[in-house]
């Protein structure tokens, strides 16, 4: 097993980790501000993937424009979902939102099957995305570079939004103390809706990447990214944005290394391996790597 091979695997892990991180970041933001475990978050990935497919292959728009439109669609779906389902439940016990999101997830999947059929669709990015870039001895597809660069850009934009803007302060204040945020004059319903929409927009873009990376999409495809994002967010410390990003990369890289370094007959146990990592981390650090104790919000 050569050094180059391992570097190559790590590069693959970073690509996968980028996508996990993007889904996890929204999941974690939504949990942070609403204390909602959003099971339907993965299904936004699916909606993003099908939106991409439609705009790219049926309408034939260029990819960068498609990406922007997918962001907008994800944002809109997030707004609609929050306003119609979670806003009316504000103040209910945590388990109410949890069950509602599970119901929403199943509903979106079944709607997807109804409208789009359960048949997987081939997902073809323009040919140039599959050409190979060689950096010394490591080979990247253009697609991988695009995924990684887009992730970095989105993460930086998000961190600037959260840390440097008025909306960002309002989001953090609302996550820390809902009632006091209201006393400060923050319209928490608006802030929560925007947070939900931003998280959903980022997940939809992850759907575009997911389709391009794996070449096939179907209405049930959101399950795996949703679950992995959940794991990544918990590893990083749920509610923490840097934690979700870190968790996504740890998960992606360790998963790829497990498959790449173990004998091939073990590769189908990658998910078992992922969950062992999760359990070990949670035994050692119950709040995740960068998490703070989230239960103490007033």
């Amino acid at each position: 097993m050569s050094f180059d091979y391992i570097v190559q695997q790590i590069a693959n892990g970073i690509t996968l980790g980028s996508m996990y991180a993007l889904v996890a970041v929204g999941f974690s933001m939504i949990y942070g501000i609403m204390r909602l475990i959003n099971f339907a978050h993965g299904d936004i990935v699916m909606i993003g993937a099908f939106t991409t497919l439609y705009l790219l292959q049926n309408i034939g728009l260029p990819l960068p424009i498609v990406a922007i439109m997918v962001l907008i669609v994800g944002f809109g779906v997030g707004m609609l979902v929050e306003k119609s389902i979670f806003l009316p439940m504000r103040g209910s016990p945590q388990v109410t939102g949890f069950i509602a999101s599970l119901s929403l997830s199943i509903m979106l999947q079944n709607f997807g099957i109804l409208i789009l059929s359960a048949q997987p669709r081939n997902f073809n990015f323009p040919e140039y995305m599959n050409s190979i870039i060689t950096v010394s001895t490591i080979k990247f597809k253009v697609l991988d570079v695009v995924i990684i660069v887009t992730t970095i850009v989105l993460v930086i934009a998000l961190l600037l939004l959260i840390n440097k803007t008025k909306l960002g302060i309002a989001i953090r204040a609302t996550a820390q103390n809902l009632d006091v945020a209201r006393l400060m004059g923050i319209n928490i319903n608006r802030v929560i809706m925007l947070t939900f929409a931003i998280g959903s927009a980022i997940a939809a873009v992850a759907g575009l990447m997911w389709g391009g990376k794996f070449g096939q999409i179907d209405p049930l495809m959101g399950y795996i990214p949703g679950l992995k994002a959940f794991v990544a967010a918990v590893i990083g410390g749920v509610g923490s944005i840097p934690g979700a990003i870190l968790g996504g990369f740890i998960l992606g890289i360790s998963e790829v290394l497990f498959v790449g370094l173990m004998p091939p007959e073990y590769s189908s146990f990658r998910d078992a391996f992922v969950f062992i990592i999760l359990i070990v981390i949670l035994i050692v650090m119950p709040n995740g790597l960068l998490g703070k104790n989230m239960e103490d919000r007033a």
Partner: peptide
Amino acid sequence: SHTPEGRGIFPQLTVKENLLVGAYN
């Protein structure tokens, strides 16, 4: 303006950010 019981500061916002939240509107 209502200063709540227990002071209600945002512990993970900086002191300056806490003051700025006061001027939110």
